[in-house]
Design a protein around this nucleic acid. Structure first.
Lengths: 152, 152
DNA sequence: TAGTATCCGACTAAAACGATAGGGTATGTT
DNA sequence: AACATACCCTATCGTTTTAGTCGGATACTA
């Protein structure tokens, strides 16, 4: 269960855009240096985000990227899905497409519950939350538990 | 965020062992055909599980594998970690090792909350639960929501 | 028309993934 | 003792994914 560099970079760039309040486009170069991400790689990621309707772009001098929607209408899940596809899948299949037989039948429920709990976090946090330096109460509750910070 | 074939197979084989009540070893071959998994591949996985103390093995005729601990003392998280390492990591680092600066600082909290919610499922379900065809109430509550079964 | 910055497709090195192969070693049965 | 069973270990292998890079085309501004 890993979050790819691509997803991490995509969210960071999107948050940076959400934080740029003055509605003028931000260049890929500026985003790359602000978040310390390889510029050419970020360009490719931003193209994905544009194709998925997360950001809009303007070419030419003074061009760059802006969010295509309001920052509070874009969740982390939206951004991750745009670059990496489905949030959770098992052996390249969606949980609901799996077919378990025998004593492992209930395992399907585990994967579905897992996905539900992943969604509960990533679909709750918006770019506006992150740009504002805060997270929803439900998420804060999760991280306020000391156990959440331990590496078992 | 994918669950690898290895992790899926490992859990299924472990559940099969938990369901084999008569404490005599089950061969890799028998587990492989019961769960429809490549036999040689499963053997490699079982070796990982043994090294991590999840299963015990006996060699020779009539040999095979048994759970090394009671089925209600082994969680799905234990099995997944044994074959795939840490449950959640971002760009090959544990969330707590990440270093975010600028407007994406709160993103760290999102990844930590994500991991906490993943744990809340996988550390709660034991092999005994699955072998018994049921899951803990907290997990059942998650899957009873119709939304949990939809592919967005 | 010069400069800026996005857009596009191809490309690459390295790692991960999903296995498979060949032989060695311990254990039980006859 | 011979034999069959079944785990054990190392190595290999083809494909896909990951994380980037490169060269140039296209669009927009001043």
């Amino acid at each position: 269960m890993r979050i790819s560099a691509k997803a991490d970079y995509a969210v960071r760039a999107s948050v940076e855009l959400a934080a740029a309040t003055d509605s003028s486009p931000v260049s890929a170069e500026a985003l790359a240096s602000a978040q310390d991400v390889p510029h050419r790689f970020l360009e490719a990621i931003l193209r994905d985000l544009r194709r998925e309707g997360i950001v809009a772009s303007r070419r030419g001098a003074g061009g760059g990227y802006v969010l295509a929607r309001a920052a509070d209408a874009v969740t982390v899940a939206d951004v991750v899905r745009a670059v990496d596809g489905p949030l959770v899948y098992v052996r390249d299949q969606r949980p609901s497409d799996l077919d378990y037989s025998g004593s492992a039948a209930s395992l399907l429920h585990v994967w579905v519950a897992l996905r539900a709990n992943v969604r509960a976090v990533l679909e709750q946090v918006t770019l506006a939350d992150l740009a504002g330096g805060s997270v929803p109460d439900e998420v804060r509750a999760l991280v306020s538990d000391d156990e959440a910070w331990e590496n078992p």
